[in-house]
């Protein structure tokens, strides 16, 4: 089983490294051919406006939407990836191209600017021990539909969620050496 990391802009190599540490064959995805080879796709942190625009123009957005709809692709989005996966963004740019894969409403830069970026330990539903959370100009989930499971929350709101084979976190597990969230996503991919 191969898992891809959307290799347009952002923390690509960090996710590739985590997948490889989990023993997975990981490949960067920047065109249709590599996308067709993977069962799971990670959308890394970066700038959602940049990534959204570039995947739209490269025709990748359409394929990702089709494959998630027919159940042949699992997706895990971190930070900017969450913004791109959200069905609704409360303070987004008009016309910002997105994937709209999950029934969640997200607020961008919910904790403030870079000065307010932080680290904290948080409880993650699927794990016994707390997870190190690195939040960088991070979004937050303001609302979620009934079909969405909230996996982690801070006092300000939800920061991790799952809907079927879609997984998203507002924080960056790829900036830590804790492999559990990636392992959790790999398990989702194997279920497909």
């Amino acid at each position: 089983m191969k898992i891809g990391v959307l290799s347009v802009q952002g923390a690509v190599s960090e996710h590739l490294k985590m997948l490889r540490l989990c023993g997975i064959e990981a490949l960067p995805v920047r065109e249709q051919n590599s996308l067709s080879k993977v069962k799971g796709l990670i959308i890394p942190g970066g700038e959602s406006t940049t990534i959204g625009k570039l995947i739209e123009e490269a025709g990748l957005a359409r394929t990702i939407k089709e494959r998630t709809r027919n159940g042949s692709l699992a997706v895990f989005g971190t930070c900017a990836g969450m913004v791109l996966m959200a069905g609704e963004v409360s303070d987004g740019l008009e016309n910002q191209p997105r994937l709209e894969l999950m029934n969640i409403k997200v607020k961008r830069n919910a904790f403030g600017r870079q000065r307010e970026s932080f680290e904290t330990n948080l409880e993650f539903n699927a794990f016994k021990k707390p997870l190190p959370g690195v939040f960088i100009r991070s979004p937050i989930i303001e609302e979620a539909g009934e079909e969405v499971d909230i996996l982690a929350s801070l006092p300000e709101g939800a920061v991790a969620a799952r809907q079927g084979s879609m997984l998203t976190t507002a924080f960056h597990p790829e900036l830590t050496d804790d492999l559990r969230v990636h392992q959790y996503f790999i398990a989702i991919c194997k279920e497909l």
């Binding site: 290799s7 952002g10 190599s13 960090e14 940049t50 930070c79 900017a80 870079q114 960088i136 900036l175």
Partner: peptide, 10 residues
């Protein structure tokens, strides 16, 4: 440092 990592490729 993570903030700069999010800017890579940009």
């Amino acid at each position: 440092k993570g903030m700069a990592q999010m800017q890579k490729g940009g």
